[in-house]
């Protein structure tokens, strides 16, 4: 009964990622895409909060969006898995519901 959460806003201008982290249940997945990918980068003010969830949640980033913004795989927070569009679709299909944090 797991949920796929998606976040498409930068964590520095919106509360979406923080709110998502606050409401996601163990076993859920979070996919960061569009400006949401900034939440997957190391060394930011929110990185520790994201990394702290990498054990209980599955964390993903849409690779095309991360690459476009100069966030190479090596700069991703440990435990964040890059996925392509097909991977995004698979995640949506394999979860019971999707909750989009706009």
């Amino acid at each position: 009964m797991a949920t796929l959460h998606t976040v498409n806003k930068s964590p520095f201008g919106a509360s979406a990622l923080q709110s998502c982290l606050n409401h996601a249940k163990d076993g859920d997945a979070i996919l960061m895409f569009e400006d949401g990918v900034y939440g997957a980068a190391q060394g930011t003010i929110i990185a520790d909060a994201v990394a702290a969830k990498s054990g209980s949640l599955s964390l993903y980033v849409l690779k095309g969006d991360a690459d476009a913004r100069g966030i190479a795989d090596a700069r991703l927070i440990e435990g964040v898995t890059p996925v392509d569009y097909a991977g995004f679709v698979e995640l949506a299909a394999s979860h019971d519901r999707t909750n989009n944090w706009l």
Partner: peptide, 11 residues
């Protein structure tokens, strides 16, 4: 709130 969200069919 988190529990309630997790009980839904469609969000």
């Amino acid at each position: 709130m988190a529990d309630m969200m997790a009980e839904q069919d469609v969000v």
